[in-house]
Design a binder for these strands. Structure first.
Length: 459
RNA sequence: GUGGGUGUAGCUCAGUUGGUUAGAGCGCCGGAUUGUGAUUCCGGAGGUCGUCGGUUCAAGCCCGAUCAUCCACCCCA
């Protein structure tokens, strides 16, 4: 009991039933990705630690899973660090970590993608569109809808500044969630609008602090947001200048003129609003999703520079977002390739799974199991079944033979547990008569058929 | 990293003010039915009560520590 085996904290096994459902989600997303011209890419589970550090902010660095150097990692630690530790002096945790570890598990798919693009820049035809469906790891504390190992399904295009890309990604979101049958709201904002707001406030250097506070508006309310801004050193004067943000309401069309007027002095903000207007106009009619402008949408990732996306389910109780994304003008800059603008989105498959399960949106028939089970009556009968088994499989029908000669009840229960539609019974009688008794597990009906009619019956 | 809840059978959970032998449902195994599952009836197995220590004549229950897990915050998919 106490030492029953388990998976590490925040990780899960995916049993066959769950896997069928997960494959359904991945398959749906992948099909749409391909329809939009994205090509598949995979990168290693681990990256060099220095590739990842510093890309996700201070908080992000803490959440990177570091891999202890193989061999005697301690031996490689420098003498001065060892001496300090021995003397009980403080050592910068980052310094010790980089000496003990030079590899880390990937934290997202975007940074490895950026690394890939820089490394292979001479082989890639730009604009480059890739999709990537792989697990990522974060040393976070798990809770509802949050895991330490989870899958991201990313689609990014890099090497094009065109807003048509943003438009396409919105339509891609719409396609995927229409196919999954889930009603969602796609929230959109533009980092330039947020920069403009910071400009208007008179403290443009505080954009990040301002934005992370504003992002929490619907969660903690205006007062707490203002309190947090004050704590971050934003002046009361600046906060007062931001005030019009809180009184915005209505649709994009209604908010746009208000914003244009309020942010008139800021050229950046005007550009952001213009870009948003383009996207809204070009997207036009959507299949099932709703596109919403949300001026308080900020998202933590520092590298976003233009559009910001977030998708939330309109159904179920999932509080967090199920997708995210945005434009980054200089993602590859840190790896030495300047001026590459890109825009990408990411589907949180695990959260989508939770929402679809809760709202009962999974199709009832998912990758049905074996179609027919041949009961085992003994060696001679089983060998006889092998021929039929081959014939059925050649016809594209999944079939299996029960491997052991055990009680019929047990074999039927196996078929029942596994949801197998038919059981083929070939015992003494059937052998003599050259027939097969086929039982329909759903209706309980049985009928005798000739071997040549078996495939037709099962189809 | 901060705060809170919960750890009893394979699973979901009861268990009274501390008091004999710790229960239920589901699942599992066997039988009713040696050629028939899901349904019915009968029977059976399965628990160091997370771990270590303390209080007590006596601890599943009280206290402390520890581990695990869940929830919330931070942050995020």
């Amino acid at each position: 009991m106490a030492q029953k085996p388990s998976t590490p904290k925040g990780t899960r096994d995916f049993s066959p039933q769950e896997m069928l459902r997960r494959k359904y989600i991945f398959g749906t997303i992948e099909k749409v990705f391909q329809k939009y011209g994205f090509l598949p890419l995979e990168t290693p589970a681990m990256e060099n630690l220095e590739t990842l550090t510093g890309k996700y902010g201070e908080e992000g660095d803490r959440l990177i899973f570091k891999i202890l150097n193989s061999g005697d990692a301690w031996k490689e630690v420098s003498e001065d660090v060892k001496a300090k530790l021995k003397a009980g002096e403080e050592v910068h945790p980052g310094k010790l970590a980089t000496q003990l570890s030079e590899k880390a598990l990937r934290y997202d798919l975007t940074v490895p993608f950026a690394r890939y693009v820089v490394q292979h820049q001479n082989e890639i035809a730009f604009p480059f569109k890739r999709y990537q469906i792989q697990p990522v790891w974060r040393a976070d504390r798990p809770q509802k809808g949050r895991y330490r190992e989870f899958y991201q399904c990313d689609a990014d295009m890099i090497g094009s500044k065109s807003l048509l890309n943003e438009v396409e990604l919105v339509q891609l979101f719409d396609d995927v969630f229409t196919d999954l049958g889930l009603a969602v709201v796609i929230k959109i904002n533009d980092r330039k609008v947020l920069s403009g707001i910071a400009e208007i406030s008179g403290q443009p250097e505080k954009v990040v602090d301002m934005v992370t506070a504003i992002d929490k508006l619907d969660k903690i309310g205006r007062e707490k947001v203002e309190e947090e801004m004050r704590n971050k050193g934003i002046t009361d004067d600046a906060i007062a200048r931001i005030a019009p943000l809180f009184s915005l309401s209505g649709s994009w069309k209604e908010q746009r003129p208000q914003l244009e007027q309020w942010l008139a002095p800021s050229a950046v903000a005007q550009q952001g609003l213009k870009d948003l207007a383009f996207t809204f106009d070009a997207v036009a009619n959507m299949k099932s999703a709703r596109l919403e402008f949300d001026p308080t949408l900020a998202r933590g990732l520092d590298y976003y520079t233009g559009a910001i996306f977030e998708v939330k389910s309109s159904e179920g109780t999932m509080p967090g977002s199920i997708c995210g994304g945005g434009r980054y003008d200089d993602l590859t800059g840190v790896f030495g390739l300047k001026g590459m603008s890109g825009v990408g989105i990411s589907f949180g498959a695990d959260r989508i799974y939770d929402v679809l399960l809760e709202t009962n949106k999974f199709p009832a028939e998912l990758g049905a199991s074996t179609r027919v089970l041949f009961a085992n009556f003994g060696e001679a009968e089983a060998v006889h079944c092998l021929k039929l088994l081959r014939q059925v499989r050649e016809a594209g029908i999944s079939a299996e033979l029960y491997p052991d000669q055990v009680k019929m009840a047990k074999q039927f229960k196996y078929a029942d547990d596994k949801g197998i539609a038919y059981v083929a019974i070939i015992g003494d009688n059937e052998m003599k008569q050259g027939i097969i008794t086929v039982k329909d597990m759903k209706t309980g009906e049985q009928k005798a058929v000739k071997p040549e009619d078996l495939v037709a019956l099962l189809q």
